[in-house]
């Protein structure tokens, strides 16, 4: 039994040539499984000591639109720091709802993606922003859009030998937010969550749902309908209450919720519609400031 703690991405990728090795980032999912006896690692690759994975940078528009590139082990607490939070407010909202301060200090964006829990808190934000996952292997680096990266509950498009090294998120102009329902007022797994991002440049609305399907769900029909009703020259405070409610119903219709011990399917569908209506009201309703 061995543990490898490389200090560079190249070393880490080289280590992944061993198919038995298991990748450990923040440990907040990995160690829960180990402690419960559900995961018995023989070889572990720890990313804790790779400084370049813990950094982020803002890249100006060139060939791509302006975006932020987050290293895979950027933590939830990192996402809450003001300089990053002001660039990606919905991501910061989502990060603040993750577990506890202790979990936010340890858990990482790459880990949230790799675990691919239907309740992963940042995943609706990544889906709404159409983030791109950078994956490295001895063969090189490839980009995988989040929409195809997550293939099902706790399933991803990651191939053996591949490592998540970064996530790229576009910088949008427009209102962004994240809301999450839990039965407790802190430290709780989402019963339903929703990310809304407005892009005034492309005149689109992106809305993604969490905990109401096998993975994050884009409510595309609702997005397009709402984008089509907005007066994009004057988007703030122009959408009427009935339209907001209709948007909520469309979003609820996009959900694929199930019954489990955390909530009923009927409640999840209802609640996600309420969240959608409220988020849209913040963006476009009376008193909004988008």
């Amino acid at each position: 039994m061995t543990i490898l703690s490389p200090t560079s991405i190249d070393e880490a990728v080289a280590a992944l040539a061993d198919p038995a090795i298991q990748v450990l980032a923040g440990g907040t999912d990995f160690m829960v499984e180990v402690n419960a006896g559900h995961r018995r690692p023989d070889k572990v690759l720890s990313l804790r000591h790779i400084p370049e994975l813990r950094t982020w940078e803002q890249l100006p528009a060139r060939d791509d639109p302006a975006h932020v590139r987050l290293g895979a082990t950027v933590t939830y607490t990192d996402m809450l720091q003001p300089d990053l939070a002001q660039l990606l407010p919905a991501l910061a909202h989502a990060a603040r709802t993750v577990g506890s301060p202790q979990i936010r200090n340890a858990g990482t964006i790459g880990g949230n993606l790799a675990t691919a829990s239907p309740a992963g808190d940042t995943l609706p934000v990544l889906a709404a922003l159409e983030a791109v996952v950078e994956v490295a292997s001895p063969l090189g680096v490839r980009d995988i859009p989040v929409a195809t990266f997550i293939t099902g509950p706790k399933r991803t498009a990651l191939s053996p030998g591949e490592l998540i090294v970064a996530v790229r998120l576009p910088l949008l102009d427009g209102h962004q937010e994240f809301r999450k329902i839990g039965v407790r007022n802190a430290m709780v797994i989402a019963v339903a969550s929703l990310a809304l991002a407005v892009d005034t440049r492309t005149r689109t609305v992106r809305c993604a749902l969490g905990s109401v399907g096998p993975g994050p769900i884009r409510a595309t029909e609702a997005e397009e309908w709402l984008a089509g009703t907005i007066d994009w020259d004057r988007p703030a405070a122009t959408t009427e209450a009935p339209d907001l409610a209709y948007f909520g119903r469309l979003v609820a219709g996009a959900a694929q919720p199930i019954d489990d011990h955390r909530g009923t399917a009927a409640y999840r569908r209802h609640a996600i519609g309420v969240l959608a209506e409220r988020a849209a009201a913040q963006a476009f309703g009376a008193g909004s400031a988008a």
């Binding site: 907040t28 829960v32 572990v44």
Partner: peptide, 27 residues
């Protein structure tokens, strides 16, 4: 041992974490 109670809180490199969620050999 799930990071849900905080009773094992320690400070690691200046950051508050749950010791139960840290693989000892990785620390």
């Amino acid at each position: 041992e799930q990071g849900e109670c905080g009773s094992c809180s320690v400070i690691v490199d200046g950051s508050l974490e749950c010791a139960c969620l840290i693989l000892a050999a990785a620390a």
